[in-house]
Simulated scan of single mutants.
Amino acid sequence: MDFLINFVIITLFICPIIALIHESGHAFFLKIFGAKVSEFSIGNGDILWRKNNFFIKKAYFFGGRVVPENHEILSKNQRVFFYLGGVLFNFLSSLVLHLLTGYEFLVFRNYLDSFIFVSYLFVVINLIPLNTIIGATDGKQLVELYRN
Protein backbone atom coordinates (compact mmCIF):
# COMPACT_ATOMS: atom_id res chain seq x y z
CA MET A 1 0.00 0.00 0.00
CA ASP A 2 2.89 2.37 0.76
CA PHE A 3 4.19 1.92 -2.79
CA LEU A 4 0.82 2.92 -4.26
CA ILE A 5 0.51 6.00 -2.05
CA ASN A 6 4.08 7.07 -2.86
CA PHE A 7 3.50 6.49 -6.58
CA VAL A 8 0.37 8.65 -6.54
CA ILE A 9 2.10 11.46 -4.61
CA ILE A 10 5.13 11.41 -6.89
CA THR A 11 2.99 11.28 -10.03
CA LEU A 12 0.36 13.86 -9.10
CA PHE A 13 2.46 16.33 -7.11
CA ILE A 14 6.21 15.93 -7.55
CA CYS A 15 6.35 15.36 -11.33
CA PRO A 16 4.32 18.50 -12.18
CA ILE A 17 6.61 20.62 -9.99
CA ILE A 18 9.68 19.15 -11.70
CA ALA A 19 8.08 19.80 -15.10
CA LEU A 20 7.33 23.40 -14.05
CA ILE A 21 10.98 23.90 -13.09
CA HIS A 22 12.08 22.31 -16.38
CA GLU A 23 9.84 24.46 -18.55
CA SER A 24 10.83 27.56 -16.55
CA GLY A 25 14.41 26.89 -17.63
CA HIS A 26 13.39 26.98 -21.29
CA ALA A 27 11.33 30.15 -20.76
CA PHE A 28 14.14 31.80 -18.80
CA PHE A 29 16.58 31.51 -21.69
CA LEU A 30 13.98 32.68 -24.20
CA LYS A 31 13.39 35.78 -22.11
CA ILE A 32 17.06 36.67 -21.60
CA PHE A 33 17.69 36.30 -25.35
CA GLY A 34 14.74 38.57 -26.20
CA ALA A 35 12.34 35.96 -27.61
CA LYS A 36 8.73 35.73 -26.47
CA VAL A 37 6.92 32.71 -25.06
CA SER A 38 3.71 31.99 -26.94
CA GLU A 39 2.80 28.93 -24.84
CA PHE A 40 3.98 27.71 -21.46
CA SER A 41 2.17 24.55 -20.48
CA ILE A 42 2.35 21.84 -17.88
CA GLY A 43 1.05 18.47 -18.99
CA ASN A 44 -0.45 17.23 -22.22
CA GLY A 45 -3.85 16.79 -23.73
CA ASP A 46 -6.82 19.12 -23.55
CA ILE A 47 -6.58 22.38 -21.63
CA LEU A 48 -7.80 22.11 -18.05
CA TRP A 49 -6.98 25.68 -16.98
CA ARG A 50 -5.63 28.72 -18.80
CA LYS A 51 -4.30 32.12 -17.82
CA ASN A 52 -2.96 34.18 -20.74
CA ASN A 53 -0.29 31.99 -22.35
CA PHE A 54 0.08 29.63 -19.35
CA PHE A 55 -1.82 26.33 -19.62
CA ILE A 56 -2.39 23.41 -17.31
CA LYS A 57 -3.50 20.44 -19.34
CA LYS A 58 -5.54 17.42 -18.26
CA ALA A 59 -2.53 15.11 -18.03
CA TYR A 60 -0.77 17.77 -15.92
CA PHE A 61 1.60 15.21 -14.42
CA PHE A 62 3.05 14.25 -17.81
CA GLY A 63 5.65 16.69 -19.13
CA GLY A 64 5.12 20.17 -20.46
CA ARG A 65 6.00 22.52 -23.27
CA VAL A 66 7.39 25.98 -23.92
CA VAL A 67 6.72 27.28 -27.41
CA PRO A 68 8.72 30.31 -28.53
CA GLU A 69 6.82 32.95 -30.46
CA ASN A 70 9.78 34.30 -32.38
CA HIS A 71 12.58 31.77 -32.01
CA GLU A 72 14.01 32.69 -35.42
CA ILE A 73 15.75 35.65 -33.76
CA LEU A 74 17.86 33.23 -31.72
CA SER A 75 21.34 32.32 -32.90
CA LYS A 76 22.42 28.67 -32.95
CA ASN A 77 24.24 29.07 -29.62
CA GLN A 78 21.21 30.74 -28.05
CA ARG A 79 19.04 27.84 -29.21
CA VAL A 80 21.46 25.44 -27.51
CA PHE A 81 20.89 27.29 -24.24
CA PHE A 82 17.14 27.28 -24.87
CA TYR A 83 17.13 23.49 -25.38
CA LEU A 84 19.41 22.90 -22.39
CA GLY A 85 17.57 25.37 -20.15
CA GLY A 86 15.15 22.82 -18.75
CA VAL A 87 17.88 20.30 -18.04
CA LEU A 88 20.05 22.98 -16.41
CA PHE A 89 17.21 24.14 -14.15
CA ASN A 90 16.35 20.55 -13.16
CA PHE A 91 19.98 19.74 -12.47
CA LEU A 92 20.65 22.92 -10.48
CA SER A 93 17.47 22.62 -8.39
CA SER A 94 18.20 18.98 -7.56
CA LEU A 95 21.90 19.69 -6.89
CA VAL A 96 21.09 22.51 -4.47
CA LEU A 97 18.57 20.34 -2.62
CA HIS A 98 21.00 17.43 -2.72
CA LEU A 99 23.71 19.52 -1.07
CA LEU A 100 21.35 21.08 1.48
CA THR A 101 19.73 17.82 2.58
CA GLY A 102 22.58 15.32 2.39
CA TYR A 103 20.66 13.19 -0.11
CA GLU A 104 22.05 9.68 -0.55
CA PHE A 105 21.53 8.21 -4.01
CA LEU A 106 18.63 5.70 -4.10
CA VAL A 107 17.88 6.18 -0.39
CA PHE A 108 14.36 7.58 -0.04
CA ARG A 109 13.75 8.90 3.46
CA ASN A 110 11.06 11.39 2.45
CA TYR A 111 9.38 13.01 -0.54
CA LEU A 112 12.16 15.55 -0.90
CA ASP A 113 14.54 12.66 -1.64
CA SER A 114 12.07 11.43 -4.25
CA PHE A 115 11.96 14.93 -5.74
CA ILE A 116 15.75 15.02 -6.01
CA PHE A 117 15.93 11.56 -7.58
CA VAL A 118 13.17 12.21 -10.11
CA SER A 119 14.79 15.56 -11.01
CA TYR A 120 18.07 13.80 -11.78
CA LEU A 121 16.08 11.25 -13.77
CA PHE A 122 14.46 14.07 -15.79
CA VAL A 123 17.94 15.39 -16.61
CA VAL A 124 19.13 12.04 -17.95
CA ILE A 125 15.95 11.23 -19.88
CA ASN A 126 15.80 14.67 -21.50
CA LEU A 127 19.39 14.43 -22.72
CA ILE A 128 18.78 11.13 -24.55
CA PRO A 129 18.13 11.97 -28.21
CA LEU A 130 14.83 10.28 -29.02
CA ASN A 131 11.27 10.91 -30.07
CA THR A 132 8.59 10.27 -27.46
CA ILE A 133 4.82 10.19 -27.64
CA ILE A 134 4.80 13.86 -26.61
CA GLY A 135 7.56 15.00 -29.00
CA ALA A 136 11.31 15.10 -29.28
CA THR A 137 13.44 15.26 -26.15
CA ASP A 138 15.78 18.19 -25.62
CA GLY A 139 18.68 15.93 -26.57
CA LYS A 140 17.00 15.05 -29.88
CA GLN A 141 16.37 18.72 -30.62
CA LEU A 142 20.02 19.50 -29.95
CA VAL A 143 21.12 16.73 -32.33
CA GLU A 144 18.75 18.07 -34.99
CA LEU A 145 20.04 21.61 -34.45
CA TYR A 146 23.59 20.50 -35.17
CA ARG A 147 22.61 18.34 -38.12
CA ASN A 148 21.06 21.33 -39.90
Score class of each variant (00 low, 15 high):
Thr101Phe: 06
His71Phe: 04
Gln141Arg: 15
Ile5Ser: 14
Arg79Glu: 06
Asn77Trp: 14
Thr137Cys: 10
Ala136Pro: 00
Leu127Tyr: 04
Lys58Val: 08
Tyr120Ser: 05
Asp113Met: 06
Gly63Arg: 03
Pro16Thr: 04
Glu72Val: 01
Asp138Gln: 05
Gly139Pro: 07
Phe62Gly: 02
Phe108Met: 10
Phe33Gly: 01
Asn148Ser: 15
Met1Asp: 13
Phe81Glu: 06
Leu127Arg: 11
Leu20Ile: 00
Gly102Ile: 06
Leu88Thr: 10
Gln141Met: 13
Leu127Asn: 08
His22Thr: 07
Gln78His: 07
Met1Tyr: 09
Ile133Tyr: 15
Val37Asn: 07
Val37Leu: 12
Phe29Val: 03
Gly139Cys: 11
Lys57Cys: 03
Glu23Thr: 06
Asn6Ser: 10
Leu74Asn: 12
Asn126Ser: 12
Asn110Val: 06
Tyr146Leu: 03
Asn77Thr: 02
Ile47Lys: 15
Glu72Ile: 04
Ala136Glu: 13
Thr101Gly: 05
Ile14Pro: 02
Ala19Lys: 02
Glu23Val: 02
Ala19Trp: 02
Phe91Met: 15
Asn131Phe: 13
Ser41Leu: 05
Gly25Ser: 04
Val96His: 11
Phe29Ala: 07
Ile17Ser: 05
Phe3Pro: 01
Gly135Asp: 10
Tyr60His: 05
Ile134Glu: 13
Arg50Asn: 12
Met1Val: 04
Val107Cys: 12
Ile73Ala: 07
Ile9Met: 11
Leu145Asn: 08
Ile134Phe: 15
Asn77Glu: 06
Ile128Asp: 07
Val80Ala: 08
Pro68Ser: 13
Thr101Asp: 04
Phe117His: 11
Val8Met: 11
Ser41Phe: 04
Asp46Asn: 14
Ile116Thr: 02
Tyr111Lys: 08
Tyr120Val: 01
Gly45Ile: 03
Asn44Glu: 12
Thr101Tyr: 14
Gly64Tyr: 10
Ile47Ser: 06
Val118Lys: 03
Leu4Asn: 12
Cys15Ala: 11
Leu145Gln: 09
Leu145Phe: 09
Asn44Leu: 06
Leu74Gln: 08
Asp2Ala: 10
Pro16Cys: 05
Asp113His: 13
Gly43Glu: 02
Val87Gly: 02
Phe29Pro: 01
Phe89Trp: 11
His71Gln: 13
Ser93Gly: 01
Glu72Leu: 09
Val107Tyr: 13
Arg65Ile: 00
Phe105His: 10
Ile47Gln: 07
Asn52Tyr: 15
Leu100Ala: 12
Phe61Thr: 02
Gln78Gly: 12
Ile125Met: 10
Gly85Pro: 01
Asn77Met: 08
Leu30Lys: 13
Gly45Phe: 05
Val124Glu: 11
Leu12Gly: 01
Leu48Pro: 03
Ile18Lys: 05
Val123Glu: 07
Val67Arg: 15
Ala27Gly: 10
Asp46Val: 08
Val124Ile: 15
Asp46Trp: 09
Lys36Met: 04
Ala59Thr: 00
Trp49Gln: 00
His71Ala: 12
His98Gly: 01
Tyr83Pro: 00
Asn70Tyr: 08
Lys51Cys: 02
Ser24Val: 01
Ala59Tyr: 15
His26Ala: 08
Ile10Gly: 04
Glu39Leu: 14
Leu106Ser: 10
Phe117Gln: 07
Val87Glu: 09
Lys76Trp: 10
Gly25Gln: 03
Asn126Ile: 00
Phe117Met: 13
